[in-house]
């Protein structure tokens, strides 16, 4: 299933699953990720799944590239059991002060804001990966008519909880962070909780996400 394995430096494997970025390719990445994670292979210290790649970094004191490559090539990859993947509902409020880039989106997409919201909330999204900042999920796919580029100049601070769009993907800023995605709304839900040691991130690769539009009143009452 892996198209090509090469080395990324002297302490990591770079597994390429092919050029296509879609659910099918990504599901293969996630299968390898979950199988390796469960197997707890000696010397492997980090696994980073992304759209179509899996990076496996290891402790060069314990193992080397050829040894880890052999393990990955001979891996018995399991089908993902249904209990591994969850369906999660994310409440999002889209009042003007949260929907920072709605005017830009209207222009770029040539759609009215009602159309944009209707399209956005009327879909299930698939979690391709999490990362960049702790717990940030990269979800897809947006419909073709909802796709646009990043902001020309990224914001220095995107507020925590912001829900952004770029190309075929949507994400959630788990912390205040710099960023260039088009912000459509804000969620009161805690997406990353560092106090939950075992599973600090609410959304994991392979999960399904649906967004539900809520009022400002519900937003304010959410954590009470």
């Amino acid at each position: 299933m892996i198209k090509n394995i090469s080395n990324l430096g002297d302490a990591a494997l770079y597994c390429d699953f092919g050029k296509e970025v879609n659910k099918e390719t990504n599901s293969k990445v996630i299968k390898y990720f979950k199988t390796l994670k469960e197997k707890k292979v000696k010397g492997i210290i980090n696994l980073t799944p992304s759209y179509n790649k899996l990076i496996i970094s290891f402790d060069l004191k314990k193992v080397n590239y050829r040894e880890v490559k052999k393990i990955v090539e001979n891996l018995d990859v399991k089908e993902i059991q249904s209990e591994f993947s969850k369906k999660i509902e994310i409440p999002v409020c889209c009042i003007e002060s949260f929907s920072l880039d709605i005017e830009r989106l209207e222009k770029k997409l040539s759609l009215s804001r009602d159309n944009i919201y209707e399209n956005f909330f009327n879909k299930e999204y698939f979690c391709y990966m999490t990362g960049f900042i702790a717990g940030m999920p990269f979800l897809g796919d947006l419909d073709k008519n909802m796709r646009t580029n990043r902001l020309e100049t990224p914001r220095v601070k995107v507020p925590k909880g912001s829900v952004g769009l770029t190309e075929q993907f949507t994400n959630i800023y788990t912390f205040e962070s710099p960023g260039g995605w088009n912000i459509i709304g804000n969620t009161p839900l805690e997406i990353f909780d560092s106090l939950k040691i075992d599973s600090p991130n609410l959304i994991s690769p392979g999960d399904t996400v649906i967004f539900k539009q809520i009022s400002l009143k519900d937003y304010k009452n959410y954590n009470e």
Binding site: K37, N46, F192, S204
Partner: peptide, 11 residues
């Protein structure tokens, strides 16, 4: 820290 890259936490 180990084994946390996949949730976005660096070493």
């Amino acid at each position: 820290r180990k084994n946390l890259y996949h949730i976005g936490i660096p070493f």
